[in-house]
């Protein structure tokens, strides 16, 4: 039975990202190209891309990226609503794990790569987050967070369950590109071993070990 890693690339598409929209889309296209060009990686790491702002948009449902012709364009705007995003990710995981299992795949714990340049604009996001990472839910994901621009370190320290990366002051566009490179390297390394191997050496980011890690 083949092993697969359900991977959620959750990207902040709020208004603060508007000036960086072109870079965001170019970065997503590069992510798509690199995965689509490596069939064994794209088969191992099934990807779902989610953009969030005032609402949550499933840009690419869980897919083998080799089968996806191109990445859609994301147009930024709106607030930075974390709560709805975590609710939606939970729904996706529930559905995707079911579908992957029906394909007789051995499904690893899902991993959420959470990329944001701002703090949450909704007050009650913690409830949704707690539900997402509740260890009593067998499908609870790992969360690897990348914060840049106006991202709040103290907030992301609550969100990251596996690893946290905080931009060291480089500009948002460089940080975004580096974060996606780190994400890609993590997926490539993990595909070689069949276990989660995080690339902690991400240019322009400080790697913050997560003190309280969830038990698999």
């Amino acid at each position: 039975m083949s092993v697969c890693l359900p991977t959620y690339v959750v990207i902040d598409a709020s208004s603060s990202m508007k000036p960086h929209e072109a870079v965001l889309n170019a970065t997503l296209s590069r992510l798509h190209y690199n995965l689509a060009m490596n069939p064994r990686v794209s088969e191992f790491a099934r990807i779902c891309v989610i953009a969030f702002s005032t609402d949550v948009h499933v840009v690419i449902p869980m897919s083998d990226m080799e089968q996806v012709p191109a990445m859609p364009e994301v147009i930024c705007g709106g607030r930075t609503e974390y709560g709805k995003t975590f609710d939606r990710v939970r729904q996706c995981i529930e559905q995707d794990v079911h579908e992957l299992r029906s394909q007789h795949l051995s499904v690893l714990r899902p991993t959420v790569f959470f990329l944001t340049d701002g703090g949450p604009t909704d007050a009650q996001w913690q409830n949704s987050f707690r539900t997402l990472v509740d260890r009593d839910w067998p499908r609870h994901p790992h969360v690897i967070a990348y914060g840049f621009g106006g991202a709040k370190r103290n907030v992301l320290e609550q969100v990251a369950t596996k690893a946290l990366f905080i931009a060291d002051g480089s500009d948002t566009e460089s940080a975004l590109s580096s974060a996606i490179s780190g994400l890609l390297n993590t997926l490539i390394a993990s595909s070689q071993t069949g276990t989660m191997l995080i690339d902690t050496d991400v240019k322009g980011f400080e790697y913050v070990p997560v003190a309280q890690e969830y038990v698999d």
């Binding site: 012709p69 559905q95 579908e99």
Partner: peptide, 24 residues
């Protein structure tokens, strides 16, 4: 049918329709 692309009418951050092969 798999999850469709979410297009909430209240959305303020539109996502262009995917060019992906729509399996859903």
């Amino acid at each position: 049918p798999r999850t469709a692309l979410v297009t909430d009418p209240e959305k303020t951050a539109p996502v262009a329709p995917p060019t992906a092969e729509k399996k859903q």
